[in-house]
């Protein structure tokens, strides 16, 4: 796995800001959001990686920025990769991976639904779990979660 990581670092240089070998067959990469899609594509297509299985994709809110988490698995090498990045809270935009991995389509829709993250290039970015006319993005840390207002459309500010 070391050779694969070396080639990745050579190819992307400073775009990979940090990496750790968590276990023998698992690495964790922290990357810049601008290269999100390029790195995912490289991990999928490079013969040393062949990460052909999109295991998971999610977002979390630290209060100052959004973290994005992607986990991939390779059916050929049995390698695991966790890719992390962070994007701005004010303008949460990141490239969509739905055309690379059809499996992240619903994950990205869910994260748009809950956090309002815009996945650029997603073929069908609309709410998935909440009603289409829901107001706001409930998983954000500053979302008002008081049980007032119309339960079918979201909580309203309390005066």
């Amino acid at each position: 796995m070391n050779e694969a990581v070396e080639q990745l670092l050579q190819r992307f240089g400073e775009a990979v800001t940090e990496w750790t070998q968590v276990r023998a067959n698992e690495v964790r990469l922290t990357v810049k959001p601008t290269c999100w899609r390029e790195i995912a594509q490289y991990l999928r297509d490079d013969p040393l990686w062949q990460m052909d299985y999109p295991a998971d994709l999610t977002v979390w809110d630290t209060g100052t920025e959004f973290g994005v988490y992607l986990r991939l698995w390779s059916s050929v090498h049995n390698h695991n990769v966790v890719v992390l990045t962070s994007i701005s809270r004010e303008e949460p935009r990141i490239a969509s991976l739905a055309t690379l991995y059809p499996g992240v389509d619903w994950h990205e829709r869910e994260m748009y639904d809950m956090y309002g993250v815009i996945f650029e290039g997603h073929p069908n970015l609309k709410r998935i779990l909440l009603p289409d006319d829901w107001e706001g993005f409930p998983f954000r840390k500053d979302y008002l979660a008081e049980p007032s207002g119309d339960p079918l459309h979201g909580p309203q500010p309390v005066n």
């Binding site: 295991a55 998971d56 999610t58 979390w60 809110d61 630290t62 973290g67 986990r71």
Partner: peptide
């Protein structure tokens, strides 16, 4: 079935994601 958790050292998780 995968759980992903983010901790900041406080008694409550910052984020729990269920795959």
């Amino acid at each position: 079935l995968s759980f992903m958790m983010v901790s900041d050292g406080s008694p409550n998780p910052v984020r729990v994601h269920i795959r």
